[in-house]
Design a protein around this nucleic acid. Structure first.
Length: 491
RNA sequence: GGGUUGUUAGCUCAACGGUAGAGCAGCGGCCUUUUAAGCCGUUGGUUCUGGGUUCGAAUCCCAGACAACCCA
């Protein structure tokens, strides 16, 4: 523990002690308000009695008159304090306030001669003491590490950050609205699973004491949602957290939010239509338009995303041929030489289809900003989807790319238990205990043909808001823990 | 895992190897309509940590911690 001794903290502690001596509880009680600060401001008219509560965020001292700002997440409103208006007791309480404290006020509204909506405070109630100072009111908090570690400070001082999280909440709410309107039912399946299936990723391990059972945090809900298809639930979705014990980057957090949707008797093409409609619905709700800009925090334009329908659809092979003509008729040696010419890094142990996939990722995916459904992918890339009837070397799936990243995959789901078993065995590399026999048992009772899709919600939010890092749209991204400083009075 | 960059007052940032500073916040004044209020005065530092080089290190070197970005 690092013990912090600091004048600023000492001053605040003294003021807190003064409040005690005045008989005031510095960590007060409930306070009835007329509405949030944003609501009161929106309904502002002169001569009304209103009550608001919020943090003290600015203090303009004019001698006997004080102009302060009270703020909450919805906005800011000026209050006017004068001993003649609020009385001596309130004035002595006010003397012991600091920026950051929570206050409740009651008073009559008026507009100052500079045109600022203001409350003339007649009653002042102390609601909570901030024992520590808040970040600079003008520059905010720019230290990215502290913005992630102490998100509350980021939210207090950076409006841009607040707005991103509001947009995230709205996107998630509108996804649920959209799917409910189309008759999909939200379900919840286990996050702790005896076998972590449904994707290829390293899981987190945990243990249940009473059952003496090792469990894994799920890497995907897929295999449980398919059990529900067997159980006769025809239109279902789950929108919740997945966990993967892998690296951290601008686009990866170990826990992330995933939407999975399953629709009995549909196929990947119907799922593509569904996801296209859904994302357009979200763009309209967020931006009021299918065209919107990505800007950095200084407001500079980074790019414009166009979601106008219909979205482009293209076969995997055709996309490769466009960036590397003659690719599929050239020899493996030629292909590796082409990679070098195109500046695509490959390693010697890569198989042919992995080399092709590198070309796809670097020359197609990363350069595709507007929506593109990639179809007819080689079956090696997607072992858990149905093979195409006309061309068994490809599978019936789409990969939706927007903003240079994969946003959503959609499959015609495999429902043949024998084929499924073979695929799972190939995937597990011969480790029998890794096969989810319970899932295969369910499939043997009959799963209807179905379409399924997944949407990485964090990447979707990044695409819709223009956030440049996943850490900007997850409240508390995983960081290595740090020593926390402790106040002397708390030790 | 590798490379690059960064870490200085509560916050935002300066400081050629030569006395660690500014703005805001804080504290003390002045001002009864201010808007990043203003004016006068003033407090505040383990320069991320530990070594080293040097007469002298925030600055140069080595190791470490944490973070950001790029690569794998």
């Amino acid at each position: 523990m690092i013990e912090e001794t600091n004048d600023l903290l000492a001053v605040r502690r003294q003021k807190l002690e003064m409040l005690h001596q005045l008989g005031i509880d510095p960590f007060g009680a409930a306070f009835e308000v007329s509405g949030s600060i944003g609501e009161v401001r929106a309904a502002f008219a002169e001569g009304q009695r209103v009550r608001i509560a919020g943090r003290l965020t600015a203090h303009r001292d004019m001698g006997k008159s004080h102009f302060c700002d009270l703020s909450d997440a919805t906005g800011r409103l000026q209050i006017y304090l004068h001993p003649k208006e609020m009385g001596a007791t309130a004035a002595s309480i006010f003397k012991n306030t600091d920026l950051g404290d929570f206050l409740g006020v009651e008073g009559e509204t008026f507009i100052t001669k500079t045109g600022e909506p203001t409350i003339r405070v007649s009653e002042l109630v102390f609601l909570s003491k901030a024992k520590r100072p808040l970040p600079d009111k003008w520059h905010g908090l720019s230290d990215v590490e502290r913005r992630y570690r102490q998100r509350y400070l980021d939210l207090i001082s950076n409006e841009h950050s607040r707005k991103l999280f509001e947009q995230r909440a709205k996107i998630i709410r509108e996804i649920r609205n959209f799917l409910h309107q189309r008759g999909f039912v939200e379900v919840e399946t286990p996050m702790m699973q005896p076998i972590a299936g449904g994707a290829a990723a390293r899981p987190f391990k945990t243990h249940h004491n009473a059952l003496g059972l090792d469990l894994y945090l799920r890497i995907a809900p897929e295999l449980f949602l398919k059990r529900l298809l067997v159980g006769g639930c025809p239109k279902i979705f789950e929108l919740n957290r997945n966990f993967r014990n892998e690296g951290i980057s601008r686009r990866h957090n170990p826990e992330f939010t995933m939407l999975e949707v399953y629709w009995a008797y549909a196929d990947y093409e119907k799922m593509a239509e569904l996801v296209e409609e859904m994302i357009c619905h979200l763009a309209i709700q967020i931006h009021g338009s299918l065209k919107f800009d990505h800007r950095n925090e200084e407001g500079h334009l980074l790019r414009t995303i166009h979601l106008d329908r219909p979205w482009r659809r293209a076969r995997y092979c055709d996309l490769i041929e466009q960036v590397a003509p003659g690719w599929f008729s050239s020899t493996p040696v030629d292909r590796r030489r082409r990679c070098f010419e195109l500046g695509v890094e490959i390693s010697p142990e890569m198989t042919d289809f992995e080399v092709t996939q590198q070309i796809f990722e670097k020359c197609v995916e990363e350069k595709t900003m507007d929506p593109l459904f990639v179809t007819h992918l080689p079956k090696e890339l997607v072992p858990l989807a149905k093979q195409n009837r006309e061309d068994p070397s490809v599978v019936d799936v789409y990969e939706l790319i927007i903003n240079g990243a994969e946003i959503s995959p959609g499959y015609s789901e495999l429902n043949d238990p024998e084929v499924q078993r073979r695929r799972l065995e190939e995937q597990s590399g011969g480790e029998a205990h890794a096969i989810d026999e319970d899932f295969l048992l369910a499939l043997e009772h009959g799963m209807p043909p179905a379409g399924g899709l997944g949407v990485g919600i964090d990447r979707l939010v990044m695409m819709l808001t223009g956030a440049q890092s996943i850490r900007d749209i997850i409240y508390f991204p995983l960081l290595r823990p740090r020593e926390v400083e402790v106040s002397p009075s708390d030790v």
